[in-house]
Design a protein around this nucleic acid. Structure first.
Length: 262
DNA sequence: ACTGTAACCTGCAGGC
DNA sequence: TGCCTGCAGGTTACAG
């Protein structure tokens, strides 16, 4: 989402939304609430894109699993998967395409996120100074749930999904199902998350299937994944066969040798 | 206030 | 070829 934000911002900041269309589902219907507003800035919190609008409103977009943002091609045939479209005052049309409809569009008073509980309780940005090792350790200690579940909850830290959770835990040598995290372990996860996420952003994101940058390109980070999706293949650190299990209904890959449970 | 589970959607790959 | 199963970058509602 950070890659998308960087490319999107210069294309839409300063533009006024003159018209909009939305899929009838309540997850997308709010797109039309942005009509007549001017886009002042494009920010991001975790996986949520937040366009600041005039008159103290925000347009919030989440891409779910299969969402992408793009400028519509006026010559392309109709696309049945467009869930929201905003016409800008330069004539261009910004589209949210989302095959599975797990994404979401909201227009809210600035900073009022009570309709989106995960955004409302979102943890600190992983690449900011607010991501504090002591507070992170405390957050991981505050629950008995598996450490991967906690990371995916977006509360100890923002923006960590299935790929980057597996990558960071593998690099940190922490078992994803571990229910107690030492300070040493949380410090390692903290550091590896920063590395994994900043590298992925530098490489334009991770394209497994649907992900595209705002310019329509695939990312390049999938070429550098060391753990995610490699179950059954040898660990790049120790050679043991990586294993696959399910945590919170999410496929999870880990190394039985490097990520010992304790 | 916690935790675990099901639900929301569609497409695709692989097995038979 | 066609049908069926399982799987997929996530969040939210609901039951206990």
């Amino acid at each position: 989402m950070e890659t998308i934000r960087r490319q999107l911002a210069p294309r839409v900041v300063g533009r006024t939304i003159t018209a909009a269309d939305a899929h009838p589902s309540p997850k997308f219907a709010a797109a039309t609430d942005a009509i007549s507003h001017r886009i002042e800035a494009v920010a991001r919190r975790g996986k949520y894109l937040i366009a600041r609008l005039d008159r103290d409103r925000e347009l919030v977009v989440h891409l779910g699993m299969t969402g992408s943002l793009r400028i519509a091609d006026p010559h392309a045939p109709a696309d049945p998967y467009v869930r929201g479209a905003w016409t800008l005052d330069d004539g261009s049309v910004l589209e949210l395409r989302d095959v599975r409809r797990f994404g979401r569009i909201a227009v809210v008073p600035a900073g009022v996120y009570d309709s989106m509980p995960t955004l409302h309780a979102l943890g600190p940005e992983p690449l900011s100074d607010d991501f504090d090792p002591a507070a992170f350790h405390h957050a991981l200690r505050s629950s008995r749930r598996p450490v991967k579940t906690l990371l995916m909850s977006q509360r100890p830290v923002a923006g960590v999904g299935n790929i980057y959770a597996d990558e960071a835990l593998w690099r940190a040598g922490v078992h994803p199902a571990s229910r107690r995290t030492s300070r040493r372990q949380s410090d390692r996860i903290h550091a590896e998350l920063r590395t994994v996420l900043s590298d992925a952003i530098e490489r334009g994101g991770t394209t497994l299937r649907d992900y595209r940058t705002f310019e329509g390109d695939t990312g390049r980070n999938q070429e550098y994944l060391e753990c995610y999706g490699r179950a059954g293949r040898p660990c790049l650190r120790c050679g043991a066969v990586l294993r696959r299990s399910v945590i919170d209904q999410r496929g999870t890959t880990w190394c039985p040798q490097c990520q010992r449970r304790r």
